[in-house]
Simulated scan of single mutants.
Amino acid sequence: MDNITIVNSASVNDSISILGLIVEADFVVQLVMLILVMMSIYSWTVILSKKKILLDSKRDIKNFSAYFSTDKTLNELQSQIPSSSTMADIFSSGYKEFTHLELGDKQANAERAYRLMNTTANSEIERLDSNLSILAMIASSSPYIGLFGTVWGIMHSFIGLASVKQASIAVVAPGIAEALIATAFGLFAAIPATIAYNRLSSKIGDISHQYTAFIEKMFVIFQR
């Protein structure tokens, strides 16, 4: 008798697969899984695009800093800026404002240039920050959406037991397994989004600090 039970359990386990559970899941659970898959795809799209943008920004800072450190006057730097970039825009906005009124108060010109450079830098930081809030939303909401699918699936499984005369683990297991897959989908979407959000926010903060340091340096140069 025990041998028959073991064989039957083994055959049930062999017949269960993740793909089969997804296909045979309740419509609501399938809908939850589809939503989570779409959220995961969108989050990875944002992650990869932001990573490329931040790499370009860091490369721009490195290249412009190397160019700026050469022994050239501000006039030469302005006339020979190698390419249009954020750092070049920050420098040009400050330099043009500082030299706008050559006979004016140099201190007042320097302060206006300082504010304008900060405005240019803040606009770039806002651009880098765009869509990060979506990553935060996906990171925080995905587990709850997956949990909703799990609760719904388990509830559906127990409702189905009402029509079964003799309940066994072989009857309950598939329904609970397909319900738990929804939670796995939620974690699959949330974990990368959480890690990426924290990592990208840290990199944007580093870029912001470098912009601020350059602006402060330019302000000191203008005040001389």
Results as ranks from 00 to 15, higher is better:
residue 46 V to F: 04
residue 50 K to N: 03
residue 40 S to M: 06
residue 22 I to P: 02
residue 52 K to M: 09
residue 58 K to F: 14
residue 17 S to F: 11
residue 61 I to E: 10
residue 19 L to G: 12
residue 32 V to H: 03
residue 19 L to Y: 07
residue 32 V to K: 01
residue 17 S to G: 14
residue 24 E to S: 15
residue 20 G to R: 14
residue 58 K to C: 05
residue 48 L to P: 04
residue 30 Q to T: 02
residue 44 W to K: 04
residue 54 L to V: 12
residue 28 V to Q: 01
residue 53 I to D: 05
residue 44 W to Y: 14
residue 21 L to N: 01
residue 44 W to M: 14
residue 60 D to L: 08
residue 32 V to P: 03
residue 42 Y to T: 14
residue 17 S to E: 11
residue 22 I to T: 08
residue 38 M to S: 11
residue 32 V to I: 09
residue 15 S to E: 15
residue 42 Y to D: 06
residue 35 I to Y: 05
residue 27 F to P: 12
residue 40 S to V: 06
residue 49 S to R: 08
residue 53 I to M: 06
residue 61 I to A: 08
residue 48 L to R: 06
residue 38 M to G: 09
residue 59 R to G: 06
residue 41 I to W: 07
residue 63 N to Q: 15
residue 51 K to P: 03
residue 41 I to H: 04
residue 42 Y to F: 11
residue 19 L to H: 04
residue 58 K to Y: 08
residue 61 I to N: 07
residue 15 S to V: 13
residue 58 K to I: 10
residue 26 D to V: 00
residue 42 Y to C: 07
residue 50 K to H: 11
residue 30 Q to M: 04
residue 59 R to Y: 07
residue 45 T to S: 05
residue 58 K to Q: 11
residue 24 E to G: 08
residue 53 I to A: 10
residue 40 S to P: 05
residue 43 S to C: 09
residue 51 K to S: 14
residue 22 I to S: 02
residue 53 I to K: 09
residue 44 W to D: 08
residue 43 S to Y: 07
residue 28 V to H: 00
residue 21 L to S: 07
residue 57 S to D: 01
residue 63 N to R: 13
residue 41 I to K: 06
residue 59 R to T: 13
